[in-house]
Amino acid sequence: MAKRIEVSDLSIYYNNFLAVEGVNISIEPRSITAIIGPSGCGKSTFLRTLNRMHEVIPGGRVEGKVVMDGQDLYGEDVDPVDVRRQIGMVFQRPNPFPTMSIYGNVAAGIRLNNTKMKKSDLDDLVERSLKGANLWNEVKDRLDRPGAGLSGGQQQRLCIARAIAIEPDVLLMDEPASALDPISTLAIEDLMHELKERFTIVIVTHNMQQAARVSESTGFFNLNGIGQPGRLIEFNSTEKIFGNPDVKATEDYISGRFG
């Protein structure tokens, strides 16, 4: 439960193109770490390397180390499938499986992991996960309906329920609220406050107020120009980043004097 991730000298490539260069970062357990920066700076790419989803894209590869509680995630004998079972992910656009019911979506991860589970235990787990995602009261009467029939905000919380149902150690969120209205965004942010009691959370966001509201630590990514690799410019406590950042570029970005 809730593990620490140490990233050292991580460079991320698409074939021979260096997308992100030399990231060093330490992600604390039971806290929310926000990643901010302009479009194209490699925030999402970096996030996807933490659970080895980056490799899904043809030509995607990394150099450097990502260590979670002493376990090298890119070690030679590490199966990316196992990594992803420990590090869950929520995507920018809500993506419940359209061919499955609400219940089926939440249970999908468990069924994958081949753990034999009694029906009653599975029912409990689905209920617990949906409650954990603050969705239970809205869907408890229609668990057998398609997940795609929910509203966007509900779908995103369904995806969170699906991710936490397999009890990961870390939860990655890639702009989880950017496709949602303010009310649904607030619901997701409230939920994140509850979830950080149990999980390590890393969130990528375009919304600086959101980063300031929810996170304990913030990393600022930037790039020098088109075609240049993205870099981690500053990593600090959120208070410091938004109050008195160490680096001028961070201050420029935060205050809107960017570029």
Binding site: N51, M53, V81, G88, M89, N95, F97, P98, M100
Partner: peptide, 29 residues
């Protein structure tokens, strides 16, 4: 089959075959 759903399956810890079962076959049925 939408990349969105294939990635959702992979991020849940699906192997390639499980990803196909979850996100490709139902979509293509």
């Amino acid at each position: 089959a939408p990349a969105l759903h294939r990635e959702a399956a992979l991020a849940l810890g699906a192997t390639r075959w499980e990803m196909i079962k979850l996100a490709v076959l139902p979509y293509g049925k």
